[in-house]
Amino acid sequence: MGMINVVGTGPGSVANITPEALQCIQDADVVIGYATYLDLITEYLADKKVISSQMMQEVQRCTLAFEEAEAGASVAVVSGGDPGIYAMAGLIYEIAVERDSDVEINVIPGLAALNSCAARLGAPLMHDFVAISLSDLLTPWEVIEKRLHAAASADFVIAIYNPKSKRRESHIEKARDIVAQYRPLTTPVGIVTAATRDNEQIVVTTLADMLDQEINMQSCVLIGNESTYTWRNKMVTPRGYAGKYQLAK
């Protein structure tokens, strides 16, 4: 019996893959993943069996991982970002339950899009925040809307995943309009596209102007709370120190 390591490769660049994740890829007999993510780590795939596929073939990839592991292989299932955040770890476990599989499963964390993007924007996640995906492929839009209302009304900083695609051009507009019901249009918004990659783009704007910016499926949109402010083109969400301590000047 082999094993499955569900590996997070971080936001994109090899420099942002953790040593543990990289070691798992190097030690694997079989590497399985979405073709776009595998293309980012080709230098580590030599002499391995590589199984790649396109979007919306996640079930097939995970099923193949079990077939390979049950035949004795050490398998690395590659996810971008962190495999436990909108990625492959959950599906691997769901399929393990369905198969009642004895394959050993390990989840190897990676830098998630939200904290990788936050680092480029300054310090927008210093207080309570939520992550919400706008993809309605697996979650009904009515549920997503309900969550947006709840997060916005509770003054969470909001990290939006999967904000816009060719099929879902209006969802980010609806999300902005929902948040604008609870927050001023001057609220800072950060948009990071293709974090750490060669085509990385970083924009700091406002709730009023965010839809004028380029947003796509490689983007993560961070909407500040009522306390978030900008300084030298960075976003800062205070943790509350100024109200409790005298800050040094």
Rank of each mutant, 00 (worst) to 15 (best):
S165A: 06
L137S: 09
V103M: 03
E142C: 12
R120V: 10
E104P: 03
Y161I: 14
M126C: 14
L134F: 11
I132W: 00
E94G: 05
S74C: 11
I158Q: 02
I105H: 03
P124I: 12
S79V: 08
K166H: 05
P163V: 08
L114C: 14
S116K: 02
S135N: 08
V107L: 14
G81W: 01
A154P: 10
S101M: 04
D100C: 08
I160F: 04
A123L: 11
A119P: 00
A87Q: 01
A96P: 00
S101C: 13
S135H: 06
G90K: 01
A152C: 07
P83K: 01
I158S: 12
M126W: 06
I95Y: 00
Y161C: 13
N106M: 10
G90Y: 00
R147T: 08
S74L: 10
D155C: 08
A159G: 09
S135E: 10
D128A: 13
D136E: 13
L91E: 04
V75S: 10
Y93L: 14
P163R: 00
A113V: 11
D136G: 11
L125P: 02
A76R: 07
V130A: 04
A73K: 11
P83S: 13
Y93D: 08
S165C: 04
W141P: 02
L114A: 08
L148K: 03
T139D: 06
I85T: 07
G122T: 14
L138V: 09
L91A: 06
K166T: 10
M88R: 02
N162C: 13
L134N: 02
G84H: 11
E145L: 09
R99M: 06
M88C: 03
G110I: 05
E104H: 02
P140Q: 09
N106K: 15
V143C: 02
N115G: 05
Y93G: 01
S153C: 12
H149N: 10
V97R: 01
R120I: 12
E94I: 06
G81L: 04
A73H: 12
E104F: 00
P140M: 12
V130I: 09
A112V: 12
I95M: 07
S135T: 08
I160L: 12
W141D: 03
E145D: 07
E142Q: 07
P124F: 09
R120D: 13
V157F: 14
A150Y: 14
V157W: 07
M88D: 04
E145V: 13
A152P: 10
S79R: 07
A152N: 05
P83D: 05
L134G: 03
E104S: 11
E145M: 06
A154L: 14
E98K: 07
I95V: 15
G122P: 07
K146Q: 14
E145T: 10
H149C: 15
G80W: 03
V130K: 06
N115W: 08
I85M: 13
H149G: 10
F156C: 02
G90W: 01
P83I: 03
D100V: 12
A96H: 05
A150H: 15
I132L: 02
A112P: 15
L125T: 07
N106A: 15
A112K: 10
V107N: 05
G81Y: 08
E98H: 01
D82M: 15
V77D: 04
V78E: 01
V75A: 11
L111H: 03
A154W: 09
